[in-house]
């Protein structure tokens, strides 16, 4: 494991902790897209199917368990927690995320690495994750006042895959490990989708004002 990969995993972990902190500390999920959280839960459930079959390392297993349980806990909180669910902006979070699931699944059927159940589901999870942030970014444009924890959460969530891209570049030059083109392309698409947000996040940080995405 190289520093980029480890930094990417830690960044991803921090984003999850920031979201849990926001929901726990403010007892509110305002500004958070339930649809993006549901898509991420689906991403982890379909990507980590080998959790019980292939043991890679303690670290690998622990991280997979953390990501699966936290994403399910957040979806549960936003749907069922008596206090938190009331702050969910249902009428603003209207992205048709079912189309993202359908599109990713069709892509995985046509472009898996291997045409086996596990590889098709793995490719599905990779394609889906690339677009999973869209409902959240759309919601962010609609919600004017989003708290800082939420913007930091999105920043770290977007940064982790960018660090993974650096990890693949590093591995390409050091281990001659070409990596999987599915991961490369999806990881690049995923990171590009955040560029707009990163720009406004940087502007808001420099001018120390609230982050505002243009309408």
């Amino acid at each position: 494991m190289n520093i980029f990969r480890f930094a990417g995993d830690m960044t991803h972990l921090v984003s999850v902790l920031l979201l849990l902190l926001k929901i726990y500390a403010t007892k509110s999920c305002s500004g958070i897209s339930l649809k993006t959280q549901e898509l991420y839960a689906l991403v982890f459930l379909t990507r980590y199917l080998d959790l019980f079959t292939d043991f890679i390392s303690i670290y690998n297993t622990v991280m997979k368990v953390i990501f699966i349980t936290s994403s399910l806990a957040i979806v549960w909180c936003m749907r069922a927690h008596p206090t938190v669910r009331r702050s969910y902006d249902r009428d603003q979070d209207t992205f048709r995320h079912h189309f993202l699931v359908l599109l990713s699944f069709i892509m995985a059927l046509f472009f898996p690495d291997l045409f086996t159940t596990r590889e098709v589901l793995w490719a599905f999870s990779i394609y889906l994750e690339a677009v999973a942030i869209l409902p959240q970014l759309v919601l962010l444009q609609r919600c004017r006042n989003v708290d800082n924890l939420t913007t930091h959460y999105i920043f770290f969530l977007g940064s982790y895959r960018a660090l993974y891209v650096l990890n693949w570049i590093y591995r390409y030059f050091t281990e001659k490990h070409a990596g999987r083109w599915i991961s490369w392309i999806s990881g690049l698409v995923q990171t590009v989708l955040y560029l707009d947000f990163f720009y406004y996040y940087f502007i808001s940080w420099k001018s120390s004002e609230k982050l505002r995405l243009p309408a």
Binding site: I56, K64, F67, G179
Partner: peptide
């Protein structure tokens, strides 16, 4: 193998 390598990533 590249496949296993990729699967050790999260």
């Amino acid at each position: 193998t590249p496949r296993k390598e990729a699967h050790d990533e999260l």
